[in-house]
């Protein structure tokens, strides 16, 4: 009697431990942002104006709690990734909040995403170098930005 009970508990624990991870992954894959990114962009212009991104970079460069900045924008989306000097990382949450508020005030009409995460930084930088190499459709770019945005919002 007891044997069966223990075996059942062991199997259930193992199964639930693994299954959980999977459902989380699935959920994050079909997030709402993904859908919005696809239906949002209706290629307005062929030339990709990176003015807002450049202004955001220039403005953040002046801060002493930001070491390196990369930004990309497309349509109403602005993606800013930056690195905080290591000894200031203690105040990471505060710095992130400050910068997000500042950017939102600077670009009122934009959907601003900012992150100090290294992965987001890598991805944004990657996207930027890719943009310089080949011409990008605005819709593709928006989808790519949406993908990075979704990644930055993931938790756990």
């Amino acid at each position: 009697m007891k044997r069966w009970w223990l075996a059942a508990v062991a199997v259930w624990l193992a199964a639930s431990g693994c299954a959980k991870e999977e459902t989380e992954q699935k959920q994050s894959l079909q997030g709402a942002d993904w859908m919005r990114a696809q239906t949002f962009g209706t290629a307005k212009g062929a030339v990709l104006d990176q003015g807002p991104a450049e202004r955001a970079v220039a403005s953040l460069r002046q801060r002493d709690d930001v070491r390196e900045v990369v930004a990309v924008n497309s349509g109403e989306r602005l993606l800013v990734a930056y690195q905080i000097p290591h000894l200031k990382r203690w105040k990471r949450k505060k710095i992130e909040k400050e910068i997000a508020e500042r950017l939102r005030a600077m670009f009122p009409g934009y959907d601003v995403v900012s992150s100090s995460d290294l992965k987001i930084f890598w991805k944004t930088k990657d996207l930027k170098t890719k943009m310089e190499k080949k011409r990008w459709d605005e819709r593709d770019l928006q989808r790519e930005i949406g993908r990075i945005e979704k990644l930055s919002k993931e938790q756990t």
């Binding site: 062991a10 624990l13 193992a14 639930s16 431990g17 693994c18 959980k20 991870e21 756990t156």
Partner: peptide
């Protein structure tokens, strides 16, 4: 256990 599941489930599975 929302966030902690990884350590414990890994310990159980790999322990077995």
């Amino acid at each position: 256990f929302e966030v902690t599941s990884a350590g414990i489930s890994a310990a159980i599975v790999f322990g077995f």
